[in-house]
Structure formats: C-alpha cells, structure tokens
C-alpha cells in the first residue's frame, strides 16, 4: 500500500535554529531518504518552500480569488512529504517515526486512496 507521510514543523523554529543544527538535520534527511530507497519503500519525496511563499486559490460564483499565504494558519506548517510503498500501516508508522521531522515536529500518515478503489466504493 502507498502512504503519504506529511512532515509538519515550526517554520519559525527552523529559521531560528543555529546553522550547525540545520546542517545536521539536512544530513539526517539525506540518510533517511537513502535508507528508504535502499529498503525499496521510497516512491517520491520533496521539501516545500515556506508557507509565506504559498498562494491560495479559490473559485466562488465564477470569481477567482487568489490570496497570499497558506490555506490554514497553524502552529506547525507542512514542510515536506514522502510517498512510500509498504505492506501496511505499521510499517508506515515505523518509517514515519524514523523521519528526522518526527523528532523536530509532527508526522501525519495518510493512506493513499487509489482511484479504482475509490470509484468502486462510491459509484457501486
């Protein structure tokens, strides 16, 4: 099954962290990604630019609304993600716990809902 691991952390906290800690964190992420690839679970994964660069788009009554900033103001912000292929939720949680982001912030584990499965559930 595929799972999306969403990495939430405090952008303000990261910005205030000493350079050494950032370097150490980046190296840890590199090793984590490599370990995922070697274990054959990595599908995709990227870091996201900070939420202050985010733009929110919404179309209502035919009018497009484009707003600066993220969809929701939260204490911790979505900063990156991994898409992984593992046998079950336990394995996904185990990989989430290993992510350097798990000790610096919060990981959200979301099972991917394959289109075919979704369609059979909702159009049957």
């Amino acid at each position: 099954m595929q799972y999306l691991l969403l990495i939430y952390s405090s952008e303000a906290g990261m910005a205030a962290a000493p350079k050494e800690a950032i370097t150490q964190m980046s190296a840890a992420y590199g090793a984590y990604t490599e370990a995922m690839k070697k274990a054959g679970v990595f599908v995709a994964g990227e870091r996201l630019k900070p939420t202050k660069i985010a733009t929110t788009v919404r179309v209502a009554n035919g009018k497009t609304n484009v707003i600066d900033g993220p969809y929701a103001d939260t204490k911790e912000q979505l900063g990156g993600y991994y898409l992984i292929e593992v046998p079950d939720m336990d394995a996904a949680i185990s990989w989430a716990a290993r992510c350097p982001g798990a000790s610096a912030g919060t990981m959200e584990v979301r099972p991917i809902w394959p289109m075919a499965e979704y369609m059979t559930t909702y159009t049957a």
């Binding site: 150490q24 190296a27 840890a28 590199g30 090793a31 984590y32 990604t33 490599e34 370990a35 995922m36 070697k38 716990a97 290993r98 350097p100 798990a102 000790s103």
Partner: peptide
C-alpha cells in the same frame, strides 16, 4: 553503512552520535 544506520534511527541523540 553509517548512512543506512543514520537513516534508520528514530532516536535523535543516537542519530547525532552516528553522524
């Protein structure tokens, strides 16, 4: 091998030690 070990560790202190 250290990279594999670092990438698989979930304890930040052990991760720093390995790094």
């Amino acid at each position: 091998a250290y990279d594999r070990a670092i990438g698989l560790e979930r304890d930040p202190a052990v991760r720093r030690f390995l790094q």
